[in-house]
């Protein structure tokens, strides 16, 4: 791993973000709107007397954590799209940059995005709805770390598919993560799913995280079992998906697709 090369690729994205209005919107505008809408829904539920323990924390906390997952995934997948749109993949992969260094730089990019978006959302939630997410305390840390890992897994999966199938698959950069939303049980407990779907959901790391978050809110204790399951599953899927990315990259080189991605 060459830190200079990772920094080089990272600087390419930072140059881009500092002058791109559209990319800044991605960090400020959409998360803010999400928060406003869900904030009002939460207030409505409270006013309507819906009995839900910690309604604000349930929805706003879940929304902020969902955005951690979403932005972590986008940090990886959209970074690849940026290279595809600017027909820069040839420049990158004809340089000494390795596949591993490429992946690490997109993962660092995703951490920067997550940090920016999550910080802003926490501030907005506190200012507009008096919701202090940091009250969850240290339990928040393993939740966030695991959601970032899950985001990377979905991001690398998405990138592999886009690399293999080209521009026609680019919509997955925004859509793929939502495929996992129903079984991640972001806004409702896992027990509301039909039993056959519950079995699948238990294999999805974010489901353990959101279940864990609700357990902290309801019982006030850190659900260690959920954290262990989420971490174990994440590490397993991360190793598998990175191996698959390397395989797809080699297939694309064999089929001559790497030089045609984006055409």
């Amino acid at each position: 791993m060459n830190v200079g090369r990772i920094g080089g690729l990272l600087s390419r994205h930072l140059y881009l973000y500092q002058r791109s209005f559209a990319r800044m919107l991605e960090i400020f505008y959409w998360p803010f709107l999400d928060l406003v809408v869900w904030g009002f829904i939460t207030m409505y539920l409270k006013d309507a007397g819906v009995s839900l323990h910690g309604a604000v924390a349930f929805f706003l906390g879940a929304l902020i954590l969902w955005d951690v997952l979403f932005r972590a995934q986008q940090g990886v997948a959209v970074s690849f799209l940026e290279e595809m749109w600017s027909r820069n993949l040839m420049n990158l992969f004809a340089s000494p940059l390795t596949v591993g260094e490429y992946l690490v730089s997109t993962m660092i990019m995703s951490i920067l995005k997550v940090t920016a978006v999550a910080s802003l959302m926490m501030v907005f939630a506190w200012v507009f709805y008096s919701y202090d997410m940091l009250k969850i305390g240290f339990s928040l840390l393993p939740f966030i770390l695991n959601l970032v890992l899950s985001g990377w897994i979905i991001g690398v999966l998405t990138t592999s598919i886009i690399m293999r199938f080209g521009q026609q698959a680019e919509v997955l950069a925004w859509g793929m993560v939502f495929l996992f939303q129903p079984i991640s049980c972001v806004f409702y407990p896992l027990e509301v799913l039909p039993s056959w779907l519950q079995s699948i959901a238990w294999m999805v790391p974010p489901a353990h995280i959101f279940e864990g978050m609700r357990a902290v809110l309801v019982d006030g204790i850190l659900p260690v079992t959920h954290i262990i399951w989420a971490t174990g599953l994440n590490l397993f899927f991360l190793v598998a998906i990175v191996a698959w990315f390397y395989h797809t990259f080699n297939v694309c080189k064999e089929k001559g697709m790497l030089v045609r991605v984006g055409e």
Binding site: G8, L9, R12, N91
Partner: peptide
Amino acid sequence: PFSLTVEENLKVVARL
């Protein structure tokens, strides 16, 4: 990359 200046693009290549 279209959204980078000439100098920025060259600096990225230099780092790579």
